[in-house]
Structures are given as structure tokens and as C-alpha cells.
Computed example of a mutant assay.
Amino acid sequence: MRILIYSGLMRIVAKSGIGQAMRQQQETLALMNMPSTMDARESYDAVHLNTIFPDSLLICWRAKRQGKKVVYYAHSTMEDFRNSFRGSNVVAPLFKRWITYCYNSGDIIITPTGYSKKLLEGYNLKRPVYSLSNGIDTEFFRPEESARQRFRSKYGLQPGDKAVISVGHYIQRKGITDFVTLAGLLPEYQFYWFGYTNPNLIPREVKQAISRKLPNLHFPGYVDRQELRDAYSGSDLFLFLSHEETEGIVLLEALASQVPVLLRDIPIYAEWLKEGETVYKGRTISEFREKIAAMLERRLPDLTERGYQEVLDNDLKEVGRRLLAIYEKELN
């Protein structure tokens, strides 16, 4: 079996979690010795669709007419579409109808977590829905002293400086305004937000937040995979303030890199990542402020080894084995 990982309009999602998921699908299939291509002009037996743009739907229809199987990766839900770009809340109900139509057009649906699977099963979907992590390359994302030194040297950090990082688009759902607020409340620590979004797409309150001038607040923009690995190794805390996720690839990367993690206490992580066992959680600015200080000053136990053990279940090799089992069951 040869798989097409359809890459149409890749330029739009290349710097997002979806783009990273597509690259990881390539790696996963290679680990399983399964041929793949990203060129729709080449021959293939089944296609992975990772976006819900109209061109992906056209590829779906063409593949079905040719008797080929279609796997829709459901990275998007109405819930995580809200509070993202300008006007997203207004069109969220239409977005739900559109993605439901797209997902129903394939043969099977794969979504990253049991939480997102439960959401999608409430969408009147007519295709089987499987929960399968996007996966994480634990051989690439791991702590390295040389990587730590590169990051700290590049950003001029002194030995005693403590660095807090986050990764994502400049959108409200990712918690960027709270990140800026916390930087203002904790001037003794350095805060770095990695990622970028076109300013024309973000609402006024987010624009105001990222334009705030604080000596300890930094927006390096989008960085490549290697530099992001350095940032994980060089930081002292990964702060993930997202209000809604289907998984959170950057969270997997941080856990694999054995960075202490503080995240927002939201339903997706209620059963998966336990408070005080694998990560720390908060709900309010006050809680986040207190826990950031307690974690950085080592007044709370280090949970990084437990977090690392948890993320090993999502290593690309393990994800590949589960994917093959789905193929054998559904795609013959």
C-alpha cells in the first residue's frame, strides 16, 4: 500500500501544528516501511487529508471515484476554531457544518485524542472515528546541554536567569494575552513566545497585548524545528495557556524535552495529564503566577521524568503500530 499525504496549500499550514503533523506522518510511515508520497500526480492506494480546504475535498472525491481509500485527519473542531482569528466566533457554526461534511466524505476519521473523538462523535458523523496521537519524535526532542547553551547564548541569558517559553499562533485561544499579563507580573523572569500570525488576522486585544513593551517579554517569531528544540532545552518552564486543544503537539514536544510544564486546567487534559503527577495546572492568573514562581524556585517537586514517561506512549514508532492496525481493520 502506498499513501498520499496530500500537501495542497501546505504554505498556509506549514508553520502550524497541522504542518508538523503532516511531516510526522511521513516519518511514521517511513518507520513502518510503508511507501508514501506528497505528490498527488504519483500513484497511491490511500490518501491522508489533513486540512479542510476545498482542494482537499476535491482530492477526496477524485480518490473515491478511483476506488481509493480516504483517511481524514480531524485536527479541527468547532470548539478549537472559536477564539482564534478575527470573526471566528461568528462563523463557528458554519465551520462545524463544513468540517462535518468534509469528514463524512472520507472512509475513516482519525483524531488525536479521546477528547476530540468525543466532540466529533456529537457531530452526526457517519464514518468510524479513531483516536490516534499525532505523535512525537522522542529521539529528536530530548534535552541536550549543547542545545541549552545555544539558546541561552543566542538570547543573552545569564546563568542565573530563568526562562519561560510558550509556542503557538498569536490567537486568544492559545492564551497569549494571559502570557503577556504574567510577564508583567513576574519581571524577574524572562518570557519568550515562539510563533507568528499575520497581524491582519488577529483581533484588537491580541494586537494590544503583543505590542506591550516589557523588558522581559520577547516575541522571536516563528523558528524552525532545530531552533525550537534548542528553546525547549534552554528554557526552565513551558507555559501552555491554551483554552482548547485537540492535542497540542508543542506540549508533547515539551514533555519529550523534559521541560517542567504548567498548563491551563482544561477538559482535554483532565484524565490524560494529572495535576501534580506529570504536570502542574492552573486556572486563574493568580494560580499561574504562584505556580510559575514555585516551579522556577524549585519549591515544587520536579515532574519532568514522569511527564517524559507519559509521552513515550505517543512516540512515532508506537503511533505507527497503531496506524497499521487501523489500516488492517478499515482499509484492507
Results as ranks from 00 to 15, higher is better:
Glu290Phe: 03
Thr138Phe: 07
Lys64Asp: 10
Arg289Ala: 10
Asp302Trp: 04
Pro143Ile: 08
Ser43Asn: 11
Lys68Gly: 11
Lys69Met: 05
Ala325Ser: 14
Thr177Cys: 15
Arg23Cys: 14
Ser36Asp: 12
Lys174Pro: 00
Leu57Thr: 04
Lys207Asp: 05
Lys174Met: 01
Gln158Glu: 15
Gly122Ser: 05
Phe151Cys: 06
Tyr115His: 15
Phe151Gln: 01
Arg229Gly: 06
Phe179Asn: 06
Ala40Cys: 05
Pro35Leu: 05
Arg289Gly: 01
Ala270Ser: 14
Lys174Leu: 02
Arg62Tyr: 10
Arg204Gln: 14
Ala21Thr: 10
Arg62Thr: 07
Pro54Met: 09
Ser133Leu: 08
Pro54Trp: 10
Lys162Glu: 12
Ile136Phe: 12
Leu255Gln: 09
Asp178Gly: 08
Ile18Gln: 09
Ala254Met: 02
Gly175Leu: 03
Leu296Arg: 02
Phe141His: 08
Tyr115Lys: 12
Ile171Trp: 02
Gly160Cys: 05
Thr37His: 07
Ala163Ile: 00
Gln172Ile: 10
Phe179Pro: 02
Asp224Glu: 15
Asn198Ser: 15
Asn200Met: 08
Leu185Met: 13
Phe85Lys: 05
Met78Ala: 15
Gln226Thr: 11
Arg86Phe: 13
Glu42Lys: 11
Ser43Thr: 09
Gln25Thr: 05
Asn216Cys: 06
Met10Asn: 14
Thr100Glu: 12
Arg11Asp: 14
Glu318Lys: 13
Lys117Thr: 08
Lys207Gln: 14
Glu79Phe: 09
Pro93Lys: 04
Pro203Gln: 14
Arg2Ala: 07
Asp55Cys: 12
Gly156Glu: 07
Lys207Met: 12
Ile108Trp: 10
Gly175Val: 04
Lys329Pro: 03
Val319Gln: 00
Thr181Leu: 14
Leu94Ser: 10
Glu330Lys: 11
Leu157Thr: 09
Tyr308Asn: 01
Ser76Arg: 01
Tyr280Ser: 03
Glu275Cys: 00
Gly175Lys: 02
